[in-house]
Structures are given as structure tokens and as C-alpha cells.
Design a protein around this nucleic acid. Sequence first.
DNA 1: GCGCTAACCTATTCATTAA
DNA 2: TTAATGAATAGGTTAGCGC
Length: 190
Amino acid sequence: MEVKQQALAETSSPMEKMNCGNQEKKKRLTSDQLDSLENSFQKEIKLDPDRKMKLSKELGLQPRQIAVWFQNRRARWKNKQLEHLYDSLKQEFDVISKEKQKLEEEVMKLKTMLREQASRTQQVSTGYTEISGEETVESTSEALRCSKRGTLHHQQQQNNIGEGNCSFTLEDYNTVPVLPYWPGVPYYHP
DNA sequence: GCGCTAACCTATTCATTAA
DNA sequence: TTAATGAATAGGTTAGCGC
């Protein structure tokens, strides 16, 4: 019963007073009221009944106004959280995009090198050795393997890939923590 | 299980204010 | 005058409680 009376009291908002003939206009809260509400919100994002009544008395506002302010404040806070989340995800996306572009360029280079090596191998296996100008072609397959391995190894070292040393994996991505966190305000679990 | 109620959330309205 | 901001409302959902 006591709760019911309180609920009734809370419904008597300024707007309803306006509708009842009382021309009380919608008013902005004063900076002192906002400071107190903000401090309270920073301490605890949820509003328990005791604190609502306490703030109501302290600030000379209806409990309903306190509740509404907290609701709206939580909504604003959540929007900010989403903005922060969007920013951090965008940053991650940009980094991954650049990494992908680099890797694609590397793949192109390596494919070109493989094609060149393959054409040389074909020339050697057919027993055809062409010496044009100053160029000398090695005719042993072992030498070819060595040179190929050396080139690939060099590429792998440059890019830190191969032998399980890939610089970025899906697992890495999945373990990157997003930041559901807004400094100065405790994380809100709905 | 069902109805009631309070509290909460999201979307929206509307008054105020600053540019 | 208008866009941005914030107080308040409407309507829906959820959880707790008594029956």
C-alpha cells in the first residue's frame, strides 16, 4: 500500500500538472542538481529506492524525476558505450585490412617468383640451356632447389611467416578484447 | 499458472537553448 | 530559424509476490 502511494506520487510529473490546468512548464535541472545526480550515477548506475528518495529530498525533485533522469542517463551512457565500441572495432578493422592488403601483395610476389622458377626448371629438364649475353643458367636441379629455398626462406623471414610464426591469426583476432568500458563509469550489465 | 505491480528499457515527443 | 539537447511520456518486457 505504501508502495502504491509512492507510485501515485511519482506519476504527478510536471507535464501532468500542466494538463491539470497548472501551467508549470518543463524545466531544466539546475547545475547543482545535475552535479549531484551525476555524482550519484558515477557511484552506481542503478537507482535503488532509498537513494531515489534521498536524492529526491536533497534536490527538491519528485522521485519520478530522479528515476527518469537515471533512465535517460543510462540511455545516454549506453549510446556512448556503443560509440566507443564502434570506434574500437573500426580501428581493428583498419589494422586487419592493411594486414590483408600486405599479405595479398606478398602472395602476388611469391606467385610471380614461382612462375619464374617453374619456367627455368622446365628449361633445365628439357636439357635446353640458353646463354644469352652475360646470363649463365645453372643446370643442376639441386642448385635450383637451393636457390628456391633461399628465396622463400628470405621472404618468410621478412614477413615472419612460416613454421607457425604467422604474424596474425584468426585466433589472435578472436582473443582481441573489445572495450565495453567507459572510464569513470562502472560497466553496465543489463 | 495467473494476475498484479514496480522497475526497467527503447523509441518518441516536446520544450529549451545556442548558433 | 533551426538543429541539438535533455526532460518527460508511451508502450513493451521482466521479475517478484500473493493467491
